[in-house]
Simulated scan of single mutants.
Amino acid sequence: MRPGSPRGGAGRRCTRSRAAWAEGWQAADFYNTRRRHSAAGGLPPVEFERIISKARAEARQEAKAA
Rank of each mutant, 00 (worst) to 15 (best):
A10L: 13
A57N: 01
A59G: 02
A28D: 13
R50P: 04
K54T: 01
A65R: 08
A59E: 04
Q61Y: 01
S38L: 13
G8S: 09
W25R: 15
G24H: 12
T33L: 15
S17Q: 13
W21H: 09
S5I: 02
N32P: 14
R7A: 12
R7D: 13
F48R: 09
G8P: 10
M1V: 11
A40D: 06
S38E: 09
K54H: 05
A59D: 01
S38Y: 07
R56E: 03
R2V: 02
W21I: 11
V46M: 09
G4T: 03
R36Q: 14
A65L: 01
I51K: 01
H37K: 13
R12K: 15
K54R: 13
A20D: 09
A19W: 01
P45H: 02
G41Q: 12
G9Y: 07
A20T: 12
P45A: 10
R2K: 13
G24C: 05
A39N: 02
F48K: 07
R50E: 01
E49S: 10
R35A: 15
R13T: 12
R12I: 02
A22T: 08
T15C: 14
R7P: 09
F30V: 12
Q26V: 12
S5F: 04
P6I: 08
A27D: 14
G9E: 05
P45F: 03
T15D: 02
R13N: 09
E62L: 07
R56P: 06
S38D: 11
K64F: 00
T15G: 14
S17T: 13
A10S: 11
K54E: 08
A10Y: 01
R13C: 08
Q26H: 13
D29G: 13
P45E: 02
E49R: 03
G24F: 06
E47K: 06
E49F: 02
R50V: 01
T15I: 09
A10F: 03
F48H: 07
G8C: 06
R56D: 00
